[in-house]
């Protein structure tokens, strides 16, 4: 018996265990919970515990929650707000991150290692505290807000003068903090793809009479598209489902979808509604994920 077990282990048992353990773990603790959520979205809210039931003639064909997601303006607005905020944050990250990544490629080796460490450092420090740091800057009485207020009042006619710049609890604050927290996700893939470029191509283009901007537009930019896509998706995907940032600095009257899901679930105790919104959000997320993996596969193929 023991000998047979040992032979099985040598032949394929060790491999089965290696595959099986993490497989089983993800099936139980990731796939199963998600399938339960998908099933919940077809249920009905009840005042029991757990607050859900599956009734009617066709218990699993109750699409009411989905009808509300598509029909109720609240949900559509939340989806649009989320996509707009995440899209804006992605574009701003690209506009700031691209020259920074390019700059990192151009500084000396010693500086580059230090600066790269400085890009990665915020990523290791607490996400929550990075959001919190901006709460301190944006508040009405903070030195930063007063600085902005004073410069605004100096520049515009007296009639337009303001007491303070309204920043907290606006969509502007959400986008600003998103750019701040997700910028490293943009810089690092961009740097990785720019660093690989052959500098002699730039020189060749220069020798053939291109001006620096033309070199950038015709040589550097097209070659960095995989980095742009990777960085863009790494910013967009987490930003669209963000919960912490809109809760702390966002506008409660135009909630983002992550906050809406959480509110439906915890405050309203409406599990079917929260689940339906979650499923729709995931379906929307499939599109950027496909784009991302398409370019990843292409980048790996060209290596």
């Amino acid at each position: 018996m023991l000998a047979r077990l040992s032979r099985w282990f040598d032949r394929r048992g060790w491999a089965d265990i290696l595959i099986g353990a993490p497989y089983l773990w993800l099936l139980i603790f990731f796939l199963l919970p998600f399938l339960i959520v998908a099933a919940m979205s077809l249920g009905t809210k009840t005042p029991t515990a757990p607050p859900i039931s599956f009734g009617g003639e066709y218990p699993l064909l109750n699409w009411d929650s989905y009808a509300r997601v598509l029909g109720d303006g609240l949900y559509l607005r939340a989806f649009l707000t989320s996509l707009a905020n995440a899209g804006l944050a992605m574009v701003l990250c690209l506009l700031i991150g691209y020259p920074m990544a390019l700059g990192l490629c151009r500084v000396s080796n010693g500086w580059r290692n230090i600066l790269l460490m400085l890009v990665i450092l915020p990523f290791w420090t607490s996400f929550l505290l990075r959001v919190y740091a901006w709460m301190g800057l944006m508040g009405r009485n903070s030195w930063f807000n007063r600085l902005l207020t004073d410069s605004w009042n100096l520049l515009v006619p007296v009639d337009w003068a303001v007491k303070s710049v309204p920043m907290m609890n606006t969509n502007f604050a959400v986008v600003l903090v998103m750019v701040y927290t997700y910028l490293p996700f943009m810089i690092l893939p961009l740097y990785a793809s720019l660093e690989r470029l052959d500098p002699t191509l730039d020189e060749a283009a220069m020798d053939l009479g291109s001006r620096p901007f033309q070199v950038f537009r015709d040589v550097t930019l097209p070659q960095s598209v995989p980095g742009i896509v990777a960085g863009g998706m790494l910013v967009f995907i987490p930003a669209a489902g963000e919960l912490v940032i809109p809760t702390l600095v966002g506008d409660a009257s135009s909630p983002m979808i992550g906050r809406l899901i959480s509110d439906e679930f915890s405050a309203a105790r409406n599990w079917p509604m929260a689940s339906a919104v979650a499923v729709v959000l995931l379906l929307i997320m499939v599109v950027p994920t496909m784009i991302y993996s398409h370019y990843q596969a292409k980048a790996e193929g060209s290596k």
């Binding site: 990731f30 919970p33 998600f34 339960i36 959520v37 995907i237 959480s262 979650a278 959000l281």
Partner: peptide, 21 residues
């Protein structure tokens, strides 16, 4: 798929599905 999905799953959904589970 199971290995990739948690990377892109919004945290709020992972949180809610774990709690319901």
């Amino acid at each position: 798929g199971l290995v990739t999905a948690p990377l892109i799953m919004p945290e709020v959904i992972t949180g809610i599905s774990s709690l319901i589970f």
